[in-house]
Computed example of a mutant assay.
Amino acid sequence: MPKRVDHEHRRQQIAAAVRRIAADRGLEGVSLNEVAAEAGISKGFVQHYFASRDDMLRYATTTLRGALEERIVARSGDGVRVRDLLIALLPLDEAARDDALVANAFLVRALKDPEIACHFRTGHRLLRDTVAALLAAARADGDLVPTVDPATEAVLLLALVSGLADAVLLGYQSGDEAIALIDLHLSRITATRRNPR
């Protein structure tokens, strides 16, 4: 019997090589030859799955969310909490730092590639909606200041974390300092429960 080939697995393997190169050298270092060498396969093999460099980059963009979702689940354990989700967005270890570098490289590419930009908008919308839903649930449970609008606060929190992530990447904010600032902001919107007399 002929061997069954998992084509999606092969595409994922190529996309992982793209991400490794992008983390190390940016997207300017990504070529069909470099990706083939990084993945340990032939250039023809890469071309079998992707007709062009642009096709390869566009596909690789669709794989960026996976690592983030794994980090969120690993940090949250039994249930996703807003704080855990926000901290998972920070480049606090080598893998998260590489993911942030790759995402930033693709973000620059998205400015001129509508398809990649669409992937970014979709991912951001899903993230924003998740944060808003978590905040709405916290408000319903009485854990959030009642005047906080979950949808607006989700946008603000993601903007805060985006800026902090860049600050950590550039080295003018430590991971601990970034977490402390997230905690400070969350403390301002968290409802203080009064002890009954």
Rank of each mutant, 00 (worst) to 15 (best):
A151T: 05
S76A: 15
A88R: 04
T62L: 10
D98Q: 15
R71F: 12
Q47G: 04
R97E: 15
A140D: 11
G77T: 05
A105H: 11
T63C: 12
L157P: 00
G66D: 10
G123V: 05
E153Q: 08
A95Y: 12
S162K: 13
G171S: 14
R139W: 01
G175L: 06
P146G: 00
R109K: 08
I116S: 05
D54V: 15
V82Q: 00
L135K: 13
S42R: 04
V73S: 11
D149R: 02
A37L: 06
A178M: 00
L127P: 04
G171R: 15
D166L: 14
G163Q: 09
Y49I: 10
F106T: 01
E94T: 15
A105F: 11
F120Y: 09
R53Y: 07
A110Y: 05
P114S: 12
P114C: 12
A100D: 03
L135R: 13
A132P: 08
L111I: 08
G40P: 06
A110P: 01
K43Y: 04
I116K: 07
T62M: 08
D54K: 15
A165K: 08
T122Q: 11
G40M: 10
L57A: 11
S52G: 08
S174A: 11
A151Q: 09
K112D: 15
L135W: 13
A96D: 08
H124W: 13
E177I: 01
A133M: 11
H124E: 13
E153N: 05
S162M: 09
I116A: 06
I179W: 06
V35K: 00
D55F: 07
T61P: 00
V145A: 10
S42P: 01
R81S: 14
H124V: 07
D98A: 14
Y59P: 03
L92H: 04
I87A: 03
F50G: 00
L127I: 09
E69A: 09
L169Q: 02
R139I: 00
G163H: 06
A88S: 13
L92A: 04
R109A: 10
L156G: 05
A151F: 05
P114R: 15
G40N: 12
S174G: 12
